[in-house]
Design a protein around this nucleic acid. Sequence first.
DNA 1: ACGAGATTGTTACGGCCGTAACAATCACCT
DNA 2: AGGTGATTGTTACGGCCGTAACAATCTCGT
Lengths: 174, 174
Amino acid sequence: MRKTSAVDRPDLKYAAYARERLAEMPPPADPEGFALAYHLLHLSYLVVADLESQIHRPRGWTLPGFRLMFKLWLLGPTQPARLAEISAMSRAAVTNAVNTLERDGLVERRPVPDDRRAVAAALTPKGEQAVQEAFADQTRREQQWFAALSPDERSTLTELLVRVLASRPGDTEG
Amino acid sequence: MRKTSAVDRPDLKYAAYARERLAEMPPPADPEGFALAYHLLHLSYLVVADLESQIHRPRGWTLPGFRLMFKLWLLGPTQPARLAEISAMSRAAVTNAVNTLERDGLVERRPVPDDRRAVAAALTPKGEQAVQEAFADQTRREQQWFAALSPDERSTLTELLVRVLASRPGDTEG
DNA sequence: ACGAGATTGTTACGGCCGTAACAATCACCT
DNA sequence: AGGTGATTGTTACGGCCGTAACAATCTCGT
């Protein structure tokens, strides 16, 4: 039975060391602020890399592609501009993602009747099946990631994240 | 005085809608698991994009470049392979990052006496000054991001993230 | 009706990241 | 001493993302 501790994890060991070093420094150094930001970004990075390599790449797709298709699955045909603001991405990134998905036959572009500038991205039947299959796998993998927390703890974590998201600083504040 | 609510935030509005839709679906659909993973990845994405555009790009650098230099600042001259495992990145990504930083005169490569394969990346004086300046700005910006939480709440959030990180699933588990 | 300003989607360019393949070097066992 | 296997750093290639610039189209006030 293999037991893993913080010492076996170079990233956690580094974070602990950095926190100690920052504790010796004068403000604005902030050991606890550093730890919060570091662990948040690092965990997200690991989850993204894991979902990408374990779930989506073996199927020949990507996580960003899946996330876009998942939105189309829930929302139906949607304009790139709306997908961009939902995802907080640039319109150019959506264009590129739709290009790749369209090339693979998972998504198609449709004209919008009322606006000749606009285009709506929509799932093809192949894309819809692809989303449903990957969705089940991704859900199970996400559950594994957070299995170490109790339901109450998971709920607390979600609530704290949402509070930060709802209060996020504007582009020029500060 | 501008008041912002969830309805003004297309991303939060989408997350709430998705959660409702998933609640109507049979397992393995998991509305709360989805919300946790979605908000975690989304918040991280926003913080990364914000630090990049507000702090580092105006100075002519990038967030990944800063994070690498910050590690060198704390650790001293370090081999790319060690930077890669600390950061959970590939060695190729470190090579590319060091190339860019070296081109800009912020980092230099040094031979390692005991191992002729190895190279150590080290901050130049220009790089060291750059890290210190950006560090102060980044710290303040991170504090703004989490100002909506009390110190206790921030501590709880950090602890929950660390628990997940320490228990993370292996490459092939599940 | 018309023109200024905003919006939509696209393209070009550069940076970041992973995988895969490679040569050079090291470690270790026989 | 020799040879197998592992490690180090690099390069090539493709995907993702942002910014900036662009043409086409829509909106709205006059």
